[in-house]
Amino acid sequence: MLQRWLVVIIGLPLLLAALLLCPDWVTVIVVCGIAAAAAYELLHTAGKKVPKCVYAFTILAAVAQEWVIYDAHTWQFYDSYQSVGMVRILCVPLVLLTVLFFVAVKSYGTPNAMPFADVATAMMGGTVFPMMYSAIFLLRMDGLYGKMYVLLPFCVAFLGDSFAMYGGMLFGKRKMAPAVSPHKTWAGSVAGLIGSALGLVLWGVVARMWLGYEPNYLNLILAGLVTNAIGQLGDLAMSLIKREAGVKDYSHIFLTHGGMLDRFDSTLFITPWIYLLVCAGML
Rank of each mutant, 00 (worst) to 15 (best):
Q3E: 11
P178R: 02
W25R: 09
L43V: 01
A229M: 15
D262G: 02
L211F: 10
V84S: 10
L170H: 10
P182A: 07
G212A: 07
V190R: 02
T227S: 12
V99K: 00
M169Y: 06
A46K: 10
A113G: 01
N112I: 10
H183W: 05
L97N: 04
V26M: 09
W186H: 08
A177P: 03
L220R: 09
V180I: 15
S107L: 03
A46E: 06
P182G: 13
R208N: 14
A56C: 05
Y213P: 06
F163V: 02
D265R: 01
Q65G: 03
K173V: 07
K52M: 14
L19E: 06
I89L: 15
M124F: 15
Y149F: 09
L152Q: 08
V103N: 02
C53V: 13
M114E: 01
L96Q: 11
G11D: 11
P13K: 07
L16S: 04
L138W: 07
W67R: 08
L151R: 00
L225N: 09
G281N: 05
H73Q: 14
I274M: 10
G146L: 06
V180W: 08
M169G: 00
V247K: 10
A17C: 14
R243E: 10
S251P: 02
V26Y: 01
L255I: 03
L19D: 10
V63K: 01
Y275R: 12
V50T: 14
M132K: 02
T185M: 08
A64N: 07
W25A: 04
L170S: 13
G146W: 00
Q3D: 12
W186K: 07
V128C: 09
I241E: 04
W25V: 15
V226Q: 08
N216W: 03
L152E: 07
R174A: 09
V7C: 08
Y70F: 15
R4A: 06
P23C: 02
G192T: 09
Y275E: 02
L277H: 05
L233M: 12
Y55E: 01
L90I: 06
L100N: 01
G172S: 10
T45Y: 01
D249E: 07
S83Q: 12
V190H: 03
H183S: 15
L233R: 00
T74E: 14
I59V: 15
A113R: 02
L139R: 07
G125F: 04
D142F: 04
V8A: 14
W5V: 13
G258N: 00
W210Q: 13
K106V: 12
I89C: 05
R4W: 04
G167F: 03
V201K: 08
A39E: 01
K147A: 09
L170K: 10
I89D: 08
L12I: 15
V84Q: 11
A237S: 14
A191L: 09
W210E: 12
L268R: 06
S107G: 00
D118S: 09
Y275F: 15
G47A: 13
D24H: 03
F264Y: 15
M141S: 11
A187K: 03
Y108M: 04
T98E: 07
V180R: 06
T185Q: 13
V95D: 00
A177Q: 06
L97F: 13
F129D: 07
A187L: 05
V128A: 12
T267E: 12
S181G: 11
